[in-house]
Design a protein around this nucleic acid. Structure first.
Lengths: 221, 221
DNA sequence: TTTGTATTCAATTGATCTATTGAATAATCT
DNA sequence: AGATTATTCAATAGATCAATTGAATACAAA
């Protein structure tokens, strides 16, 4: 094999990974899978895609080596093949954030409101959690919370937050988190909590980043 | 704007970056640009692509924010817009590598030969360079060497290596490097040097990684 | 075995991407 | 000014991709 061919073949292989990252739906699947493993049906439901479509995207992810499968009974469960996939997605985000003004525009338009711009850092939070200063709020769906969450966190899925607002007191300091640095759930949660006079902030990153950093996590039995 | 729309729009922006990484030629351009800025013509020449094609790919890279341009006279020079682009490419490589070794043995066989080449780590090399133990060999084209190289390195482009073999003594220890962790130039160089009885090893990463790590570099006047 | 469920496969349509070609623009040189 | 060079634009054909639909497979429960 000539050197030129090897080089081209290598870049072609790298490009295959890039191709798999070139579709918004697939990136969304990756973010869901970063929370924990999921069945095809479950992914189809949460993403709003058809089953067949979901299956095809997942197979592309598998062929590129980003996910692996496990069969249990009649279900097929997909999961990320390694932490490096989360790191890759975050690297993609970092470049997008820095260079695509549209991203910053979107974020600032809908999400940031400047006050929110003081996200809590992970190691900072850990100390405050241990001293009981703050309430950690996980606004992801129950399924994802069960698969793993921050120690001591309480789980109120975003769409149920309104009915639980009475349970917070104005003295409490709440730190909300969800799936990742750009996950919209925690932005919404912080906004609603503040509307009701509750001191709330966002954790800068989400559960996958916390876990990859080697910080302690809890899982439901 | 609804929360779902924002989310989808954000992923669509991230996917734009992915799309730009989905073509082998563009990845190759990124690797060339990681060595230093280059004109369109120069990139077309080294990549073997047509000028028009090169220009179009570069514009896609620019629209995605991965590169910026500088006009000097009648030439347009392209350069990477930041170190995070190199980190992104390396993150892509890392994921691909894990999968490649499982799937594509042809490529991994040619490159790996891990037992033979056992690459030298960057910080390891720095100490040995300073004590004069090793000769550092840069096998990239002169153009890229001039744009920046490891301190004290000598430049012999790979295709000229044969004619300079006599200048190495069997006592010398040579560490060769080129454009990055998967750059084939240094693999070939080490193989040829060893064929002639010269002790040679590969630097694990290439010049861009060295530079990003904050290690010292030299540039030609 | 029959029935039902979860997932995958196959075929289709419309859209997008790549590479090529030749012309258009812009800056430099004579 | 006219000619030359470097780069970009525009139009094209062939290839690939996304989403839809309906059928096929594999497993489990009745």
């Amino acid at each position: 094999m000539s050197s030129g061919n090897v080089k081209h073949e290598l870049f072609a292989q790298f490009a295959r990974i890039g191709k798999v990252l070139s579709n918004a739906n697939r990136l969304e699947f990756i973010e869901y899978l970063a929370q924990g493993e999921r069945s095809v049906e479950s992914l189809a439901q949460i993403s709003g895609q058809s089953i067949a479509n979901t299956s095809q995207h997942l197979q592309q992810l598998r062929q590129a080596g980003l996910v692996t499968t496990r069969k249990d009974g009649q279900r097929v469960y997909y999961r990320l093949s390694g932490d490096d996939v989360v790191l890759l997605l975050n690297s993609l985000r970092a470049v997008a954030e820095r260079h695509l003004t549209e991203v910053n525009h979107l974020v600032s338009l809908y999400l940031d409101t400047k006050d929110n711009l003081e996200p809590v850092m992970a190691d900072d939070l850990l100390a405050r959690v241990r001293s009981g200063e703050v309430t950690v709020l996980d606004v992801r769906p129950r399924e994802e919370f069960a698969a793993g969450h921050l120690p001591g966190a309480i789980n109120i899925p975003l769409n149920e937050l309104e009915t639980h607002l009475g349970e917070f007191s104005p003295d409490q300091v709440v730190v909300a988190y969800c799936r990742g640095p750009y996950c919209v759930l925690s932005y919404d949660a912080v906004a609603r909590l503040r509307q009701h006079g509750i001191k709330a902030n966002r954790l800068k990153d989400g559960y996958p980043e916390w876990k990859i950093a080697g910080l302690p996590v809890e899982t439901a039995l």
